[in-house]
C-alpha cells in the first residue's frame, strides 16, 4: 500500500504529511504530527475526546480518514488559545473546575467553541444536547455546563 501525500491547514498552519489510506485523521494528528492534545477514548465516534473541526464543522477525528484532510481547514485544541492567552472557554473551564482528570477536556473545549459559534446564547438544554457526544466520567457535567454557559455570556458581552 502506498502512502498518500496530503496538503492541509491545521490551526492556520499549512501542513503536508504522508499517510496510509487506512489511517484516521486522529492517527495522523497524534502520531504523525505530534498533536497529542486531541485524545482517543474509543475510536468509534462514541466519546468525543477526539473532537476537532473540519472546515468549521465539528467532527470526531477518529471517524475521518487522514486522506480526507486534503485541502481542508482543521482546527484542534492546540489552536484554541491565542499565543499565551487562554480562550475565554478555557478560562471558564478552569474557573468553574469543569475538569477533573482532564482527558475529555480538549474535546469538550473544541466542541464548546463550535457550539458557541453556531449559537451564541444556548439554553442549558441546548448546551447539554449539543455536547451529548462528549463523554465525561468524572464531573457529572454540572460544572462543564456552567462553564459553557458562563463562557457564552462573556463572549456575548453579557457578563
Amino acid at each position: 500500500m502506498t502512502k498518500k501525500h496530503v496538503s492541509t491547514t491545521i490551526n492556520g498552519d499549512a501542513i503536508e504529511f504522508l499517510c496510509d489510506p487506512n489511517d484516521t485523521l486522529l492517527d495522523v494528528l497524534r502520531k504523525e504530527l505530534s498533536l497529542t492534545g486531541t485524545k482517543e477514548g474509543c475510536g468509534s465516534g462514541d466519546c468525543g475526546a477526539c473532537s476537532i473541526t473540519l472546515d468549521e464543522r465539528l467532527v470526531c477525528s477518529c471517524l475521518v480518514l487522514g486522506v480526507e484532510a486534503e485541502g481542508k481547514n482543521i482546527g484542534t485544541i492546540e489552536g484554541v488559545s491565542n499565543k499565551d492567552q487562554l480562550h475565554v472557554i478555557q478560562e471558564k473551564f478552569l474557573e468553574h473546575a469543569a475538569l477533573q482528570c482532564g482527558i475529555c477536556t480538549p474535546g469538550l473545549i473544541v466542541s464548546t467553541q463550535a457550539l458557541l459559534k453556531e449559537n451564541s446564547n444556548p439554553t442549558e438544554e441546548e448546551a447539554r444536547y449539543y455536547l451529548a457526544g462528549n463523554l465525561c466520567r468524572c464531573t457529572g457535567y454540572d460544572k462543564i455546563i456552567r462553564a459553557v454557559l458562563d463562557a457564552a455570556d462573556v463572549m456575548r458581552g453579557a457578563a
Binding site: 498533536l35 492534545g37 484542534t76 478555557q90 473551564f93 474557573e95 482532564g102 482527558i103 477536556t105
Partner: peptide
C-alpha cells in the same frame, strides 16, 4: 478558597501528557 488548579493550564490547552502521549 476556589483557586485555579496549577495543572489546569496544560489540561485545557492539550499540552498535558497522558498514558498514550509519550513517544
Amino acid at each position: 478558597q476556589r483557586s485555579i488548579r496549577p495543572d489546569g493550564f496544560e489540561k485545557v490547552t492539550g499540552r498535558a501528557n497522558y498514558g498514550s502521549d509519550l513517544n
